[in-house]
């Protein structure tokens, strides 16, 4: 893992802006992510969370501002950055091992089989190497995609609502798995989610974005010790934080209420 020089953030987002034609997805977005921490980004749909994450991955160029990784701007995909997609995004014509070896094939690198075997063991996928994605459950597929992302030993892992499509129980298992993997690898993780519970369970910091244009509204520290227990997560402190974050998001939807006003107007018209 890359060591961090004194006080410099692992990831630094400076005045990031992104436009799609007339739509301003992000504007004046600033955020620092310390090394070896998990930071979650929450916010209502269309607040530019995914745009921000894809810009961090180097896949999308920003319209203005910059994002620095270890002090150098990200202008294209970098090997230190791993990306986990919304759906598992496995290639259906390759078996599980073929999917995990895909990055090495593209890069023409020799795969680190001991590390891959360890990761497969870690996420309980040992013995499924020959299985094809359509033979695996949604949770197994997403676990495989996490192994794929970690196989190149990235120092930053970007996760774009990775568990949104999973059922609630599988989702909790996956959250614990992410925490365990993080405790072992100390990768810096940026995690996008719709779920405040998920964000609180996983993160050292929770970032709330405002919609259109996407801006950082608030950053909350989550001070609970790890590994986080159910008792802590059900405690008063967690409840209060949850409430404040929810108020942030809900408040935005109310005050940004063009849509709500239109809706009530329409109701009155009828």
């Amino acid at each position: 893992m890359a060591t961090n020089t004194s006080g410099q953030a692992k990831l630094a987002i400076r005045n990031a802006g992104k436009r799609y034609g007339a739509v301003v997805a992000l504007e004046g977005c600033a955020l620092e992510v310390e090394a070896n921490t998990i930071v979650s980004i929450v916010g209502p749909s269309g607040c530019g969370k995914t745009t921000l994450l894809w810009s961090m991955s180097g896949l999308h160029a920003l319209s203005e501002g910059e994002i620095l990784l270890d002090g150098t701007p990200i202008v294209k995909p970098r090997p230190e950055i791993g990306l986990v997609f919304q759906e598992a995004n496995l290639l259906p014509w390759r078996n599980l091992l073929g999917n995990i070896l895909f990055p090495f094939e593209v890069k023409g690198q020799k795969p680190d089989r001991a590390w891959i075997d360890h990761l497969l063991e870690r996420v309980n996928l040992k013995g499924f190497e020959k299985a094809f994605p359509n033979e695996l459950s949604g949770g197994m597929q997403q676990r495989a995609s996490i192994v794929r992302a970690l196989s190149l030993r990235p120092s930053v892992l970007l996760m774009d609502e990775p568990f949104g499509a999973l059922d609630a129980f599988t989702r909790e298992e996956m959250n614990q798995l992410v925490e365990e993997i993080w405790l072992e690898t100390q990768t810096t993780i940026v995690f996008i989610t719709h779920s405040i519970e998920e964000a609180l369970f996983l993160s050292d910091k929770v970032v709330v974005l405002t919609p259109r244009p996407g801006r950082v509204l608030n950053v909350y520290d989550v001070p609970f010790a790890r590994p986080r227990t159910m008792e802590v997560m059900a405690g008063k402190d967690a409840f209060d934080l949850h409430h404040r974050i929810k108020a942030d998001i809900y408040g935005q939807q109310r005050s940004g209420g063009g849509a709500a006003a239109e809706a009530s107007g329409a109701a009155a018209a009828e």
């Binding site: 894809w54 896949l59 294209k76 990306l83 997609f85 895909f102 593209v106």
Partner: peptide, 11 residues
């Protein structure tokens, strides 16, 4: 998404 995946590894 699959093309983005390949691109993220510099394909």
């Amino acid at each position: 998404n699959k093309i983005a995946l390949a691109r993220s590894y510099g394909a």
